[in-house]
Computed example of a mutant assay.
Amino acid sequence: MSDLNNVKVILFDLDGTLIDSVPQLYLAVQAALKSNQLSAVSIEQVRDWIGNGADVLLKRAICQQYHFTDIDETLFQQVKSQFDHYYQMGIDRDYSLYPAVKETLSVLAQAGYSMAVVTNKPDQFVQPLLQSAGIAEFFTYTLGGGRLPVKKPDPLPLYYLCEQFKVQPTETLMVGDSKNDIQAARAAGIPVVGLSYGYNHGEPIENSEPDWVLHRFDELVSLLNAEVRN
C-alpha cells in the first residue's frame, strides 16, 4: 500500500470520474452514425466503449463491437467530423457531475492540494465541459487526448503533468475509474485510487488492482485526511 503523506498533486480522470458524460456522448455518437447511414448503437454499448478516446469509441461504434476491425479511413473521418460537430454543440447539456464532486474538490483545494485533469477525451472538449460543469477553477492544468503523442494507459501524460508541477511521481496521486488510469499510474510509479462507479468497459475496477478502491468521490477527503491537513 502506498503512502499518501507526501502527496502534493492529485491527477483526475474526467469521464466516469468527475462527470457522467455517457448521455451526451451517446447522443453525439448516434447523430454521427445516423448522418452516415450507419446502424444505431445503445447507450449501454457506448458506456462500455468509453475510455480509450473518441477515435476508438467511434471505431467501436462503426463496427458495433469492442474489438473493432479495419475501417475505411474516409468513412471514419466523416463519422469523426460529424461527432465533433454534434458533441461540441451539446457540450453544455446531457451530463451530470457525480455526487459531491464540486464540494470535494473545494475541500481538497482548501487543504492545499494542486490538481489537474488528465483524460483521453479530445483536448478541445475538456475545458468547455469543465467550465460548463462549474469546476474548471479547481484545476491548474488540463491535459486531453491529442496534446501528446500517446494517451493513457501510456504513462507519458502523467509524467508530463508531474513535470509541469515539478513534483515526483511519489508526490502525486492518480484518481480514475478505468483500467487505463490504473495501468498508466502503475507504469509511472504513481499511487492510484480506483472509483467503482465509473465505466471501465463493464469490468469491476477491483480487477485492475488499484491501491485503493473508493465507492464515493467524497471518500477522497478521509483517505487523504484532507479536512485536517495544513
Rank of each mutant, 00 (worst) to 15 (best):
94 D>W: 10
149 P>R: 02
157 P>M: 04
199 Y>S: 02
115 M>K: 03
119 T>M: 10
97 L>P: 09
153 P>S: 09
97 L>H: 11
80 K>S: 12
146 G>T: 09
114 S>T: 04
117 V>R: 05
159 Y>G: 00
114 S>N: 08
185 A>L: 01
73 E>N: 11
113 Y>P: 02
112 G>D: 06
109 A>C: 13
136 A>L: 07
115 M>Y: 09
186 R>L: 05
131 Q>M: 13
175 V>C: 00
83 F>D: 06
198 G>E: 01
171 E>I: 01
144 G>K: 03
94 D>N: 15
71 I>L: 01
172 T>S: 10
88 Q>W: 02
105 L>F: 05
127 Q>T: 10
109 A>N: 14
107 V>R: 12
188 A>Y: 11
140 T>S: 13
150 V>W: 01
168 Q>T: 14
116 A>G: 11
106 S>N: 15
145 G>T: 10
86 Y>H: 15
166 K>Q: 15
177 D>E: 08
192 V>E: 03
121 K>S: 07
94 D>S: 14
83 F>A: 00
78 Q>M: 08
189 G>W: 02
121 K>V: 02
131 Q>H: 14
168 Q>W: 01
129 L>R: 00
102 K>R: 14
114 S>C: 03
136 A>G: 08
101 V>D: 09
92 D>M: 01
182 I>R: 05
155 P>G: 00
163 E>W: 01
148 L>I: 07
110 Q>N: 14
156 L>K: 04
188 A>G: 12
184 A>L: 09
128 P>S: 03
123 D>S: 12
166 K>C: 13
189 G>I: 03
167 V>L: 07
191 P>F: 01
179 K>R: 15
149 P>H: 02
88 Q>M: 11
132 S>H: 12
133 A>M: 08
189 G>K: 06
123 D>I: 07
95 Y>P: 03
139 F>V: 03
99 P>F: 02
198 G>P: 09
132 S>L: 11
154 D>F: 12
171 E>M: 08
159 Y>L: 14
127 Q>W: 01
